[in-house]
Each structure stands twice: as C-alpha cells, then as structure tokens.
Computed example of a mutant assay.
Amino acid sequence: MKAIEVAAVAGVHLFESTPYADERGFFCRTFDADVVRSVGLDPDAFVQDSLSRSVRGVLRGLHLRSGAGEAKLVRCSYGRIFDVVVDLRPESPTYLSRGIFELSDDTQTTLYIPAGCAHGFQALSEIADVSYRIDRPHDPSEDVTIAYDDPELAIPWPLPVSSMSERDRQAPSLAEVLKNVLSHPIPSHNVPPHEES
C-alpha cells in the first residue's frame, strides 16, 4: 500500500492498495497504520466504521459536519463511484477547490478527506458499496448538506440522478451554507502549504 498526495485539495491523500489476483479472486490490504502514519495522520484517531449501499445513479452529498468537523477514509469496496471532495476551509491554500476521483472495487483505493471538506458521490455501477471510517462518532445535529448541483461548484456528475435523500434534494446553496452555517469555520489541523506543480 502506498500514499499519494492529491494536489487539487490540500491534505487529501489516496491510499493505493495492490490487489493480488489469482484464480480464486483477489486479496489486498485496505488499511495500514504505518502508511497512514507516514503522511502525518493518526491511525488510532478513527473511531467509527460505516457502510452504504447505492444503486446506479444514486447521489449522496454533498455532506460535511459543523462543529469540530470530521475527517474520514472512504473506499468503494464493491462496484464503482464518481467521488467529489470540496475544500471549505478558509485558511486552506486550496479553499473552494474540488477534487474528483473514481473509486472502484478493482483497485480498493482509499480516499482520505480532512475535516472541513464536503464530500459526495454518485454510484456508477449497478450496486456500489462504500465504506467510511470517521474520526468522531456521528452526531446528526452537526450534519451539513450543500446542493449537489450548485452552479458555483459546477460538478460534472456523470449520470442523471436516479435517487437521492430528501435532505440532499432540499440542500441549500454553497453561498447559503458558507454565510449561515459555516460562518464560524470548522477548525482544520495540519493543513499543508499548497505547491503548484
């Protein structure tokens, strides 16, 4: 397993696995504390694991948490997803930038998303299972949602939306969330300087 820094959003990393395939299927490591530690993250900070299952075209997001925020590791354990991270940390050198990724069960790549970044995805396969590992127990009172089709973000979702939650459907614009919900920024820790490549 190796860690790759993502230039588009400061502090985001991809943890690439190496699946070993044979006639039985494959085997790969999906979490390695030493590799996580090598990029300055505390592997013991993650306290809760969750799993979502979506059918093709389902869109979940854009989600983040208020208060102390929430860092997470996201992996598509089955199927394929179009995944988006939006940097909402005002002190970050990549503030309001977005990163777009395709995660799939072929690679089992894990995406690290720092606290203060919004996250969403759309299922590209008939079934997509997404595993989440978060660094604070979930508190629904801190849930924040941003409109997936906000024109300021102009995210190129690849499929028509087949289904989404009512909360996501009614989500406010990015401007409204920045003004009314995130007017007290989520603290982010260890935001690295951004270097243009």
Rank of each mutant, 00 (worst) to 15 (best):
A3S: 06
I4P: 03
E5W: 05
A8V: 08
G11N: 01
E16A: 15
E23G: 15
R24Y: 13
G25T: 02
F26R: 08
F31C: 05
F31P: 06
V35L: 09
L41W: 01
P43W: 03
Q48F: 01
L51K: 06
S52Y: 01
S52N: 09
V55W: 04
L59D: 02
G61Q: 03
G61Y: 01
L62E: 09
L62Y: 01
L64F: 05
R65C: 14
S66H: 05
A68V: 09
A71V: 05
K72E: 05
L73R: 04
V74W: 05
V74G: 10
R75N: 07
C76W: 11
C76T: 14
S77C: 11
Y78L: 14
G79L: 02
R80Y: 04
I81Q: 06
D83Y: 02
V84I: 14
V84G: 13
P90H: 07
P90T: 00
L96G: 11
R98Y: 08
G99A: 15
G99D: 04
I100Q: 06
E102P: 04
L103V: 08
D106M: 04
T109G: 14
L111Q: 03
P114Y: 09
G116Q: 04
H119P: 01
A123Q: 04
L124G: 08
Y132N: 00
I134Y: 00
I134E: 03
P137E: 13
S141L: 06
S141V: 11
V144F: 03
V144R: 00
T145F: 11
Y148P: 02
D150N: 09
P151S: 05
L153N: 02
I155V: 15
I155M: 07
W157H: 08
P158S: 00
P160G: 12
S162A: 13
S162Q: 04
D168Y: 02
S173M: 09
S173N: 09
L174I: 01
E176L: 07
N180W: 12
V181K: 11
V181A: 08
L182F: 02
H184A: 15
I186H: 01
H189S: 13
N190R: 11
P193R: 07
P193I: 11
P193V: 13
E195W: 06
